[in-house]
């Protein structure tokens, strides 16, 4: 407690103390303003949403558990037959997972190739970098749903529509992450290869790719998780897979079928989450990057 009383005795310390108070006061003000903005956004948003909703919040709160209860009752009534339903819908789950894997591979390969052109340290041609970055931005911003809806019109209800839609978005998402990884790569191997006369492609293949590939794979696995969810959703607009089946049974209100599909989907998503987290840890643990 002596330190505080001494403050006034030293004009220099008093000045520091005042500056500290001023800064911390300003910081508190900013924090309060930020919290106020967040609260306003939440309250205002909820008011607008409540107005636009066809049912009301308080009315819905009491009936919130009705639907899950109906579903569970239907499932209970189905008895052992419910496990047969799991087997019925399993092929559709495989289709959804296939959509996710294929679109991740396409996005990985194309996004990976584009990312080299979108990295400032690897590409000397500034306009190419700029154009590639904007192209990746547009791919990323394009909601999968929009593309899937248009493709379902042109191709008919087929999983190919979902593959193209998800892959398009994946190119943008992975391309951006990959180019950030590229920009953090160590440039010494690139210079070394350049000094012995390696071409651009050789420099990328032997100096950059070995550095960034583990990170690429890690990001790719993370994307796979996201894409499984996305492909399930796209089924709802007719792009095949488990989502299309779910839409059908939801429309018909077949409770037992709905729970069977939900259980399949949730199990698959959780399983893929854990597998990819495990694989990513293994990848990164071995190389020590990221």
């Amino acid at each position: 407690m002596r330190a505080q009383t001494d403050l006034s005795a030293h004009p220099h310390l008093a000045e520091i103390g005042a500056a500290y108070d001023r800064l911390s006061g300003r910081r508190t003000l900013y924090t309060l303003l930020l919290i106020l903005c967040a609260v306003l956004a939440i309250v205002g948003g909820l008011t607008v949403a409540e107005e636009a909703n066809s049912g009301s919040f308080w009315g819905g709160l009491s009936s919130f558990l009705d639907y899950p209860r109906d579903l569970i009752e239907d499932t209970w009534a189905a008895g052992w037959g419910w496990f047969g339903l799991l087997a019925t819908y399993f092929p559709y789950l495989l289709e959804t997972i296939n959509i996710a894997i294929l679109s991740t591979i396409i996005g990985f390969v194309i996004g990976g190739s584009f990312s080299f052109l979108a990295s400032r340290n690897l590409m000397d041609n500034r306009p190419v970098v700029f154009i590639m970055r904007r192209a990746l931005d547009v791919c990323r911003a394009f909601p999968e749903l929009v593309l899937a809806l248009v493709l379902v019109l042109a191709l008919g209800p087929t999983p190919v529509a979902a593959v193209i839609a998800v892959a398009f978005h994946t190119i943008g998402a992975l391309g951006k992450l990959f180019s950030e990884t590229n920009e953090n790569a160590d440039m010494k191997p690139v210079e070394g290869l350049a000094s012995v006369g390696a071409s651009w492609l050789q420099r990328m293949r032997f100096a950059v790719l070995p550095q960034v590939l583990p990170n690429y794979l890690s990001y790719g696995l993370l994307r796979l998780e996201i894409n499984v969810r996305a492909s399930a959703i796209l089924g709802f607009v007719g792009a095949g897979g488990l989502g299309a089946e779910l839409k059908k049974v939801v429309d018909w209100n077949y409770g037992a079928d709905i729970t069977a599909i939900i259980v399949l989907l949730v199990t698959a998503i959780t399983l893929i989450d854990y597998l990819s987290a495990f694989a990513r840890r293994a990848l990164i643990g071995r190389t020590g990057v990221l």
Binding site: A49, G55, G60, S63, F64, L246, T270
Partner: peptide, 28 residues
């Protein structure tokens, strides 16, 4: 947390649309 995450927005929105009706509140 796993349960909330695993159910996914798609299925949650189905359940909430039943309870709260069509509209952004269910989406939120």
């Amino acid at each position: 947390f796993d349960f909330l995450r695993g159910i996914d927005t798609l299925i949650w929105s189905l359940i909430f649309i039943r309870a709260f009706g069509l509209g952004p509140l269910s989406g939120i």
